[in-house]
Design a protein around this nucleic acid. Sequence first.
DNA 1: ACAATTCCTGACCTTTTTAGTCAAGAATGA
DNA 2: TCATTCTTGACTAAAAAGGTCAGGAATTGT
Lengths: 154, 154
Amino acid sequence: MRITSSIEYATRLMTTLSRAHGQAPLPAERLAETDNVPGDYVSQILVKLRRAGLVTSHRGSSGGYALSRPPAEITLGQVVRAVDGDVFEDVCGKYDGGAKDCRHQSGCTISPAWQKLGALVTGYFESVTLAAILEQDPARCAAPPAWLEKFSER
Amino acid sequence: MRITSSIEYATRLMTTLSRAHGQAPLPAERLAETDNVPGDYVSQILVKLRRAGLVTSHRGSSGGYALSRPPAEITLGQVVRAVDGDVFEDVCGKYDGGAKDCRHQSGCTISPAWQKLGALVTGYFESVTLAAILEQDPARCAAPPAWLEKFSER
DNA sequence: ACAATTCCTGACCTTTTTAGTCAAGAATGA
DNA sequence: TCATTCTTGACTAAAAAGGTCAGGAATTGT
């Protein structure tokens, strides 16, 4: 389980754009330098962000990209969905090993575990805004979530 | 972000082996049928599970695979690590866009977000045992984790 | 001892995804 | 009008995922 380059790049770009919010738009090339994103790749990512309505673009000299709304109103989840489609892909219906029906075998015993994981990841992504990323204190929220224990109860 | 086929298959196999715990070992072919895992692929996965010490194998007729310890002492995390190496891969040092140093740009602003996600996912995997998967009530633990809100505080 | 059963090892292959490049064109502002 | 900047979509290379195959070694039942 991993963060793809697109997501990593996109979040870098979005945090940089957050810092520049309210100021002049930043050209793609400038963003590529600042965030160390491969030159031509950055455009592809920015296009996806624009199509998702997260950034606006302006052509011509002194053009570039800017956030379409304040950093506090953009979540990591929106960024991830913009570039990768889904935050957490559904398992059901895949890996059926040739079976016609969904073979989440044995009455779908494990399906709830994936669903909970999906909800956990999705919930996290939705709860984190760009503003929070910029402002947060890294020391906060370090404690392990106590509610997780419930799952391992006998 | 998704569950790979190896992980899905491995967890199916492990739940089936959990049900058979204490009984005669199950041959790979039998497991393949039961869990709808492609015939020759199942052996590869079982080998990894064995090398990780999660299952034992016995050759010869009436041989097969069995859990090496009770279902309550095996976590999803152990299964995932057995087949895929890591539960959550580190982002730092990757996607540096040609830069020599780790370019988690701008003083590693986003790195804490990935680390928290990693801790969340890892914590979940470690908290879930095979016994819990078999015994749990799907209705439980459905509530969204309240502590997540802390991250989005302004 | 022998044959059937079952695991073991590692090479091999195909498909999909990831990651990135490139080029021609259209809009914009100075 | 000209330099700047975004737009579009095709293209490609490398890696990972997903799966297959074959020859060999151990074990058990007879």
